[in-house]
């Protein structure tokens, strides 16, 4: 049986681990470790290897949910991680100093994978920092020639994460129907 996976990426503290936790059927395997440098400013533990969760589909298929390590210095795994991926979920933290820079960094890092699949962007922490707005993100993306879903997301809320993933799948094929 084929292995399918959805990749979650984004900067430290953007909510990748939480988002995977929100939709995974099994408790995700967390590999958070005590942060020892600048990431300490953002959260006490950070993901140094990867997060992993599973969605079990009818018929026994499994969708593997992988979160990339939050600290960019561990990103030499990214090329391996995306192989065979269905698409990319990019989570951005709106309280970061320059979330647009983060966005461009990750879009650039995964440009090949995105061109082969697609990306949906979730912006977290918008209840704490209301700017930049979702419209601002679209303006930035337009300048990059990208028109992709960008949603406000609370990574703790299953429905938010679910809608974000759904948008990715519908972007890949609007003809897809719910086959419940």
């Amino acid at each position: 049986m084929s292995q399918y996976k959805i990749i979650f990426t984004g900067p430290v503290g953007a909510g990748k681990t939480t988002a995977i936790n929100s939709i995974s059927d099994t408790p995700p395997i967390k590999t958070d470790a005590t942060a020892s440098d600048m990431t300490k400013l953002r959260k006490a533990g950070t993901t140094v290897a990867m997060d992993y969760g599973i969605m079990n589909l009818n018929g026994g298929e499994k969708i593997h949910l992988y979160g990339t390590p939050g600290q960019e210095r561990f990103d030499f795994m990214w090329d391996i991680l995306v192989t065979g991926g269905i698409g990319l979920i990019l989570l951005l933290d709106n309280t970061r100093a320059d979330p647009f820079q983060d966005m461009k960094f990750f879009l650039d890092a995964f440009d090949k994978f995105i061109s082969q699949t697609n990306v949906s962007i979730g912006v977290t922490q918008m209840d704490i920092s209301t700017t930049p707005t979702i419209d601002d993100y679209h303006l930035q993306l337009k300048a990059l020639g990208i028109n992709t879903p960008v949603f406000s997301v609370d990574a703790r809320v299953k429905n938010d994460v679910s809608l974000l993933v759904q948008s990715l799948l519908f972007s890949l094929d609007p003809g897809v129907e719910d086959v419940a």
């Binding site: 298929e61 299953k158 993933v165 759904q166 094929d173 419940a180």
Partner: peptide, 23 residues
């Protein structure tokens, strides 16, 4: 016309799963 993805069935099953698990 839109070309159906080769993974349309799989994508549909994932969406079904996501919607079924919505609360």
């Amino acid at each position: 016309e839109i070309k159906p993805s080769q993974k349309q069935g799989l994508l549909g099953r994932i969406i079904s799963k996501l919607r079924g698990s919505n609360v």
